[in-house]
Design a protein around this nucleic acid. Structure first.
Length: 153
DNA sequence: GCCAACGTTGGC
DNA sequence: GCCAACGTTGGC
């Protein structure tokens, strides 16, 4: 089992939206970056654990955890021309983009703010904390995962 | 294949 | 709103 961090713009899809989703489950559509796509398509497995991260908001940080319930499959939003995630180059015969399904595991009482993560020496190598890091899907080390859980309040 | 220009991300 | 960092595009 592996660990991941998924970023979502809080105003677009946040952890309360996930909580309210049917079976607290959603497909993680709209990733349009090749490196992140490769993680979704090739590496993320059913049962992997996910930190749900809020970006682009007043307090960016980790809002909770989720579990992968379905492994990588073609992102059909890419061939829906009414979707924001439409990509003319992708089609169902030759899909470019992939998504997984996740189910909410736990919504933290308090968000673990990015500023708090930055203070932790043990997390200095975390992908999300690297300068200029923009990848929306990043691997999390097992040690990072368990350490971050101790930061909850 | 190089690289400048451009659009996007996302913290602050 | 600003702007640094990044990924993509496209001319050459």
């Amino acid at each position: 089992m592996k660990y991941w961090l998924f970023k979502s713009e809080e105003s677009v899809f946040n952890i309360c939206d996930l909580l309210k989703s049917p079976k607290k489950t959603t497909c993680w559509e709209g990733v349009r970056n090749y490196q992140a796509r490769n993680f979704l398509r090739d590496e993320i497995e059913k049962g992997d654990m996910v930190f749900f991260y809020h970006s682009n908001c007043e307090t960016p940080g980790i809002a909770g955890t989720a579990v992968v319930t379905k492994e990588g499959y073609p992102d059909s939003y890419a061939w829906n021309d009414r979707s924001n995630y439409f990509d003319v180059k992708s089609n169902y015969k030759k899909p470019i983009w992939y998504m997984v399904d996740i189910r909410l595991k736990r919504k933290f009482k308090n968000i673990i703010p990015l500023s708090e993560l930055r203070k932790q020496t043990k997390l200095k190598d975390m992908k999300i904390l690297q300068k200029g890091s923009r990848l929306s899907v990043t691997p999390v080390a097992k040690e990072e995962w368990s350490f971050i859980l101790t930061l909850k309040r």
